[in-house]
Design a protein around this nucleic acid. Structure first.
Lengths: 362, 362
DNA sequence: CTGAAAGCGCTAACAC
DNA sequence: GTGTTAGCGCTTTCAG
């Protein structure tokens, strides 16, 4: 079906095959006039370069690959958006594969993309305790959002830092009794909690209560916890709720409101994983910057760096390098920041991330 | 870097190059013992077949492509999940590209995938009023979730049917005053509203009020509307709210609760776009089946059908075909369905969709 | 700028 | 079953 070939274009445009190839790959080597004719012919004939042949013949694809573990979690979507943005900025295309939580499929997809001769790939592995980076790499690979001591290139979030950032923010807002909600089922959740605890260990006067509860860290769990915490007698009622995820925190706000409390007058609430999917609730949520977005961007940057240098250093073998994305605070109405009508300076800072789209995530 | 080639494997395994190729592509033609040796060698050497070369030499890729307009909306994520599920069921891989709301990028990605020699592609176009299917197709293309009179293959949702389904459900639940909330900014929203109006035109006794309000159809808009509707004097207060999107409906539930109303005792609420991203609120939301998921599945089915038949019918030229995905109802607690603790039969029906993951969408 | 020609790594078809 | 070989469509190089 892929009828028309480069030779057809050349004949039709009255130039030689090599010239068409040059017009495509090294436009500067072709007289503008000729180039115009060629482009018109391409358009007229509907010529689509056969990418397989291009690659085989040894061009570079200008395409990067991204393998995601799933598509229903904010973190992966942020990574995808950040990676796409950054790839485009550098003139690269990005193609993605979704592993649907299947480790074997993730592996297969990564291998396929490598075999496809993309210039490099980003992999957010399906989480599992015994995860190890693949041994064989035909192209540069960067792993995202995993912790591993093995050689390789990694970009990950600073979960402890996120927890600490939020805790510090709340301490300066006069917290006296903090309830942390969420199941510490994953390493990431545990680290966030550790960050919070570290900060509060310097403030023995502040009551810290951890409700390691709920099944799935979904919004409904946050809601019930919000309701029950607000129904307590006033002397044992927390004045701050921190959700280990933004989704939980958003649920807690809804619960607190329906129990008749006012946020932030009666209660401060904050999340700590910067998940825009949870930001469309009634009260704007204080949380950190969306780490996933930055992970995606840094991942691409690191990848391009490796692609650029790998020719220079053919056999750098077993190096290990890890980039950590530092979070920054997004203070908003749920902890008393100036409500709507104008973004805070920090939100402006977030907006200065190229093409970062703060709203419209649902 | 892609050091090891098929010849290396052959030499190392002590067989001929053709045999390795056969072991890979037509395993039945190779003695099991030989196959085992070859596979071991492949593993040991870390051989990755060069997909570009495979394609060029004329195999079939067993890969399908999917071009999405964006990654932050439930509908596209559902499509991706549905398509992946169905593709895998048929032994195909799926690779995706995200156009980030840029029509030109969407076009480019589609062309790239075609040039990549995938067996076929699915495209959910970036919405625009003058959208037209591309003229040139190197491989079969199916368009998703667009309306167009042009020749081509389409799979889309029945938005009017969705509205009608929800309206009928509420009529049978004794609605007397229905408030429909949401901006009819897109064709899809208008169709949903039309479906609702059609049903209610047969019930002149039921008050129908349309609040074409809010900026972006985000949850916060639903929340404010929920609050203000519940604060009305009782004789002009609706007993039913329909959100043109599930996100709005979820916001309205939160708003109504915080205004002291009980859902579903004082008020019934339903959405009508089946968006799992909005389902994690305090009260389970009545809505329709997630159309996107089925669109993705049907899209793959139609694509495979075309791939299978196109050899038989080489030049079927300007055919037009459209598959419409019919919605079904998911009655839940927000309109009085039996609350938690056991799924409704209809939810079981939804769950019978292969690998449909009803929860855990956030 | 042209025209010719040498592969890129693989598949499939062919004799053995 | 094995070994050999002719391309797949393109990029690049090289002489004109």
């Amino acid at each position: 079906m892929a009828r028309v070939r480069i030779g057809d274009v050349a004949r039709e445009a009255g130039v030689s095959l090599g010239t068409v190839s040059n017009a495509l790959n090294h436009p500067e080597k072709v007289r503008p006039e000729t180039r115009r004719v060629i482009n018109e012919t391409i358009e007229r004939l509907g010529y689509l370069p056969n990418q397989s042949a291009r690659m085989l013949a040894g061009g570079q694809s200008n395409v990067l690959g991204l393998v995601l573990p799933r598509l229903n979690h904010g973190s992966s979507l942020q990574i995808a958006n950040g990676a796409l943005t950054e790839a485009r900025r550098h003139g690269y295309n990005l193609i993605m594969a979704n592993a649907n939580d299947d480790g074997a499929l993730s592996e297969r997809s990564a291998r396929y993309l490598m075999g496809m001769q993309v210039d490099g790939i980003l992999v957010q592995p399906v989480q599992s305790l015994e995860w190890e980076p693949a041994a064989m790499h035909a192209v540069p690979v960067i792993y995202l959002d995993v912790r591993s001591g093995s050689p390789g290139y990694y970009v990950s979030a600073d979960n402890m830092g996120q927890g600490a950032l939020i805790a510090r923010h709340l301490v300066t807002h006069g917290a006296t009794h903090i309830a942390v909600i969420g199941r510490t089922s994953s390493q990431q959740m545990k680290l966030r909690l550790t960050g919070i605890q570290d900060v509060l260990s310097a403030h023995p006067d502040i009551v810290l209560e951890v409700l390691d509860a709920g099944e799935w860290n979904v919004s409904g769990d946050g809601y019930s916890l919000g309701v029950s915490l607000m129904q307590r007698a006033s002397h044992e009622r927390p004045d701050v709720i921190i959700g280990l995820t933004d989704v939980l925190a958003a649920g807690a706000i809804a619960g607190a409101l329906s129990a008749g409390a006012h946020v932030p007058d009666d209660l401060l609430v904050a999340g700590c994983d910067g998940n825009p999917l949870a930001w469309s609730g009634p009260v704007a949520l204080t949380t950190c910057s969306p780490a996933g977005y930055e992970i995606g961007r840094k991942g691409i940057q690191l990848l391009l760096e490796r692609i650029a240098t790998q020719d220079a250093l053919p056999h750098e073998a077993h190096e290990r390098r890890e980039e950590v994305v530092r979070p920054f605070l997004l203070p908003r109405a749920s902890t008393g920041a100036a409500p709507t009508g104008g973004l805070t300076t920090v939100e402006n800072r977030a907006l200065s991330i190229p093409e970062f789209n703060m709203g419209a995530y649902l």
